[in-house]
Design a protein around this nucleic acid. Structure first.
Lengths: 337, 337
DNA sequence: ATGGAGGACTAGTACGTTCTAGTCACGGCA
DNA sequence: TGCCGTGACTAGAACGTACTAGTCCTCCAT
């Protein structure tokens, strides 16, 4: 209660002095590496704890040749990014790596976030759903190993880990078609990463089922409001679609919300499919049918991909096959057996 | 494209050598402080950029007496925390401070997150909606300046910035009572920070309106599912309440979702009030009546409070008066003029 | 001419660690 | 007895930067 003298935190030298040994030995103990007797080890640990000593990560990483630090940018308000970040923490820890976060938000641009990462000297940068332009991406890649999650790029040297967006949306369409739906709409992600692939996947799949004429694509976005707006627009038609494939779970949530509000039964009247299988889809009261990207697998691949880049291996693109998670927001088309 | 020799990033010494000057001068230029001629400044900046030199934040903070770094823990899946983090970035930047984030998630405990922060040697730790026990909090406070946001504590030395939870819920109840509602339920936050205050505020306000007998409190939580579950439970009653005050916006979202699904008009049949005024409440298709905590103000107070602690000033508790944001989920009680 | 004043620049140390290359004592073995 | 291996420990040099205390040099007022 009284040991906080001057406000400066105790350093290894303080601990060493208190224990009557060298700083090198304290270092050995704190790192838990062999080279100290069991007795000293116990004693030092005890003293350190009493003094409130905590190793300085800064000095530590500065000294170490490899910082064992991974930088991650993510969008503060994207639940799926939250899922990914959580899994990246775990995947990194498994390899003895630390993670430093840099958030993207309406008032904090991605370039700001990336700049902060760069200055942290992380060994690699993992960008979740980045919207960086080719130019900026290339510059970043020149600065250090860079890996994109959930977005494609042709910039050489940049690693990519993503789900197969075309295939994912196709799964959704196949599922709906099998349920007898003919008139299906897609509320897309506007300019968001992956949205052009999903749009294409939708149209191709619809074509495969001979439904190209009743396929409808709406400009959407990745927020609830985009989904809600799109759905309201669709409901204003004389014959609204019987099924909607949303760009992501957030968008689908908006769709579901409008449907509930306007008194349309889901899936009785209209079926809805989301994308991501984020926590939004899993809620017991939502039980959304969605296309799962398996955050854990993507995170694992992202971390190992990033470390491959660090090790000097060639940048590669890993594409994961998504799978459909059938829950309660899809059902037979009205009038279908 | 070819300058990345050996994989080691260029250092100040490299830039200095390339420019034929001392590292000290490079340092002066990079920091933008007076002491270099305009000509050198331009030249050094150009060379640094060409070499892809980025100052090492680690070494920098290590050297500086004060690290000008604020640590923040937040919950990855709590939209209101996202709002707060965004504003904290801004408030910190205004004072020339950096922010380091440490996320809390189901698979990443708060103590882990705090430990990571400690090792980063930030000048102060800001904990959003912490659930740390008194014991742990006290230990943390001994380690360094600590400030809690959106949660109260009696631990001495710990700063607190929060909204007036009792008053906030009272605002909601007053609003509903004025609209003629008599039978009002509160789905609370279970053990979450602030939930006991909100519960109390609810009961007191109901009492003030002479409605203590029709006041109902349900164990809830801070997720959509908690809200949904609570609402379903209420709807199973023979006479459900005509209004619901949810613990937070996420909880209210779950409530609204169930109501929509079960075909109950909002606010025609049942009114709903959230808490936080997070992005969930602001969506055009939701337009949730909610109690605003004004993230920007809380963030500003949190940052300045944390820096006060750093400056050695006494820990204090700042309580902000919340205000009601009337939107579209509340209306007159059924049968009320 | 002389004496600053101030601008441009540099040498060298400190920050808190890790790591390399030791030193020292002890014990076992030939 | 001498030799060597081993376990416990230490001295001191990095790591990349910021900062203090200078050193020059030029220019201007006296």
């Amino acid at each position: 209660m009284t040991e906080e003298a001057g406000g400066t935190r105790p350093t290894m030298a303080d601990v060493a002095r208190a224990a009557g040994i060298s700083t090198a030995l304290v270092s050995i103990v704190m790192r838990g590496v062999p080279g100290a007797s069991e007795a000293t080890r116990k004693r030092v640990l005890k003293i350190a704890d009493e003094m409130g000593y905590v190793p300085d990560q800064r000095a530590r990483k500065l000294r170490q040749s490899s910082s064992r630090l991974l930088g991650v940018t993510f969008e503060l308000q994207q639940p799926f990014h939250g899922d990914l970040v959580e899994q990246i923490y775990a995947a990194a820890a498994r390899r003895g790596y630390d993670v430093t976060l840099s958030a993207v938000a309406p008032s904090r641009e991605e370039s700001t976030a990336v700049g902060a990462l760069l200055r942290e000297r992380c060994e690699a940068a993992i960008l979740l759903g980045s919207r960086l332009g080719t130019e900026e991406l290339a510059r970043l890649a020149r600065r250090g190993p860079t890996l994109l999650v959930a977005r494609h790029t042709d910039v050489p040297g940049v690693g990519v880990v993503r789900g197969d967006d075309k295939a994912g949306v196709a799964l959704a369409v196949d599922h709906l078609a099998a349920l007898g739906h003919r008139h299906i709409a897609h509320i897309d992600g506007a300019g968001a990463p992956g949205s052009s692939d999903r749009r294409l996947g939708f149209l191709e799949a619809m074509g495969r089922h001979g439904l190209q004429d009743s396929a409808e694509v709406l400009a959407g976005g990745l927020t609830e409001s985009a989904g809600a707006q799109g759905m309201r627009y669709l409901l204003a038609r004389e014959t609204p679609p019987t099924a909607v494939v949303a760009f992501n779970d957030r968008c689908a949530t908006g769709v579901l919300d409008v449907l509930g509000r306007e008194g349309h039964a889901v899936p009785g009247e209209i079926s809805v499919v989301g994308y991501d299988d984020s926590r939004l889809a899993k809620f017991p009261h939502v039980q959304m049918t969605t296309v799962s990207q398996d955050a854990a697998r993507l995170a694992e691949a992202a971390v190992s991909g990033a470390l491959d880049l660090v090790a000097g291996r060639e940048a590669s693109e890993s594409v994961f096959a998504p799978h459909l998670v059938e829950r309660a927001t899809t059902g037979p088309a009205p009038g279908h057996p």
